[in-house]
Amino acid sequence: MKDWRYWLAEQRGTLLAFGIFIVMFVIYTSNHPAGFTANVVQTAANKGVLLAFVAMAQTLVVITAGIDLSVGMIFLLTNCLASWLVVGTPMQTTLGVIAVLAVGLLCGAINGAIVIYGRLQPIVATIATGAVYYGIGLLLRPFPGGSVNEDLADALTGRVFGVVPASLVVLLAIVLVIWVPFSRSVLGRAAYAAGSSETAAYMSGVPIRRGKFAAYTLAGLLAAIGGLFLTFFTYTGEAAYASGNSYTLFSIAAVVLGGVSLFGGKGSAIGAIFGALAFRTIGDLLFVFDFDPLWQPLFQGVILLVAVSLGAFALFRVRNRLEWFL
C-alpha cells in the first residue's frame, strides 16, 4: 500500500541529485550563447561522462563503507595504457580495449585484496596503491603523447542519429551491464550489508568478503572505462598528477552530491552519476556567465562547501544528542 513511500525514501538522495542536475543544466543551457542545441549537449555530456564513470567507481567502494583514493590514478594509468594499445586494425583495437579493461580490473582487485585480505585501512592502502599506479602510468608515458584509433574514438564521442550523445548511450549501457546486475546480485547486497553493519552482516552469514572484493574490483573496471574515454576525447595519454588527484577528489564530491552516504550502506551509482553531471555543470556555469576563469576554483570550492554543509540539516532531526556520534 505504501510501497511508493519506501521507494521514495530509498531514492531520496538520487532524486535530489537528479533535481539539482536538472536545475543547474537548465540555468546553464538557457544562458549559453548557443542555447539548447545538440552541440552544447554533446560537449557537456562528454565532459560529464568522464567524471560520471569515476564517480560510479567511487560509489561501489563507498557503499561498502570504504573509500578508494586511487580511482583517479587508475583512471590516469588506463589512459596512458590506452594511448599505447587502442590503435591499429579493428582486431588490434578490440584486443587493446580488452587489455586496458583487464588492467583496470587488476588494479581494483589489488586494492580489494590489500584492504580485505591484508586488513589495511582503505584510506591509507589506496593512497599507497594510487602512488604505485601513478608511477606505472608515468613509466608508460613520461611525456604526453600517443594515439588512439580515431574511428572508434569519434564514434564513441560523437552523436547517435545526430541528436543523442554517444557517450551518454555508453554510460547507460554500462549502468545496465554492470551496476544493475551487481546491485541486485547476492554480492551487491553483501556489499551494501557490509557497509551498513559489517558485524551484523558477518553474523548473518552474508559473504561480506566476496561482496567487498567484487565492489573494489568493479570499481577498478569502471575507472578503466573512464580512462578509456579520456583517451577517446583527448587522443593522447598523459600522466598528470594534478589531474588524477582532482578526479579522485571530484569523485568524492560527486558521490556526496549524489546522496551516497560516506558511512556506507546507502545510495546508488545512479545518484552518483547525476551528482557528477551536476558538479561538472556547476563548474561550467562560470563560463556562460562570462566570469574571469581565475574565480573558477573558488566558485567550485564554495559550491562544494555549501553542498556538503547541506547534509548538516539532518542534525535538526536528531532527538537524542548521542546520535551526534554515530
Binding site: A253, V256, Q296, G301, L315
Partner: peptide, 17 residues
C-alpha cells in the same frame, strides 16, 4: 557533524580558490 574527509576537502578547495 560533516565527515572530516569531505569538509576538509571542501575547505582545501576554497583555500585554493
Amino acid at each position: 557533524r560533516i565527515p572530516s574527509m569531505i569538509i576538509t576537502l571542501a575547505t582545501n578547495a576554497v583555500a585554493q580558490g
